[in-house]
């Protein structure tokens, strides 16, 4: 569904953020992109979302090139690809009602149909009551806010959702429930989940790509990489995750 080939991005001559990044996402798959700060994972996500243009290489979606300058394509692309961001406090407009927040893709992409009903359905899917519609973001907890952000991402029935550290800002007990929500939703869509948290990615994605300093150091099936990490960085990353006492 998504083909990324030899992607390159940098600022100026000396600062390279991404170098020779290639991977692909199968339709219906859950792919995790794991990296720490400076790995280029946020830049990669911006390129995948068509918010910036790569300096080299290509991203193609269902055979078409993702080009931020191609307005016609971007309109179709936005209908099919939506996003969830890290900070549920910053990702919801504090002055908009939940109904308008979730309804934004429907309105902006002029999607036909009863928007109110579609928003209600999306709310239901993320486990929130319809009464949330007329309320403002500050009336909700962090976890509920992230549910609202997820509802916005799925309301237009996209084929793929890109999530950027979408559970990292949440408390542990909330985090597990949002991960479960993502898991349930991913049954019917393709999910690209970017995170620094190996545990979360392991719980959610069957395939992972490990990024370090703008390069892919390892990619493959999650279970295999966790069992036998090949690259020293992956080994170090895995060893660094604190574990519960036995």
């Amino acid at each position: 569904m998504l083909e990324i080939a030899n992607l390159r991005f940098g600022y100026g001559r000396e600062k390279t953020v991404l170098e020779d990044v290639s991977f692909s996402v199968r339709a219906g798959a859950n792919l995790g992109i794991v990296g720490e700060s400076g790995s280029g994972k946020t830049t990669l996500l911006r390129l995948l979302l068509g918010l910036s243009r790569p300096q080299g290489g290509t991203i193609s979606f269902d055979g078409e090139t993702v080009d931020a300058a191609d307005r016609g394509f971007m309109r179709r692309y936005r209908r099919k690809v939506q996003a969830v961001f890290q900070d549920p406090y910053s990702s919801l407009d504090p002055r908009q009602k939940v109904r308008d927040i979730i309804g934004e893709p429907l309105a902006s992409l002029s999607i036909p149909g009863d928007h109110r009903q579609m928003v209600a359905a999306a709310l239901d899917e993320v486990g929130l009551d319809e009464s949330a519609m007329e309320r403002l973001p500050h009336q909700f907890s962090g976890g509920q806010r992230q549910r609202i952000a997820i509802a916005r991402a799925i309301v237009a029935r996209p084929k793929m959702v890109l999530a950027d550290e979408a559970v990292s800002a949440l408390d542990l007990s909330t985090r597990i429930r949002i991960v479960e929500l993502f898991k349930a939703l991913s049954e019917s869509l393709t999910l690209v989940f970017v995170s620094h948290d190996l545990g979360v990615v392991a719980a959610l994605c069957e395939e992972i790509v490990i990024l370090e300093a703008g390069r892919i150091v390892e990619q493959g099936r999650t279970s295999e990489i966790l069992r036998a990490p090949a690259h020293p960085y992956t080994q170090r990353l895995l060893a660094s995750v604190p574990r519960m006492p036995a």
Partner: peptide
């Protein structure tokens, strides 16, 4: 600089909107 602007962009909202 807020994420809701990026979210609006990925929701297909144009800059004037």
């Amino acid at each position: 600089a807020q994420d809701y602007i990026t979210a609006a962009r990925t929701s297909g909202t144009s800059w004037p909107m």
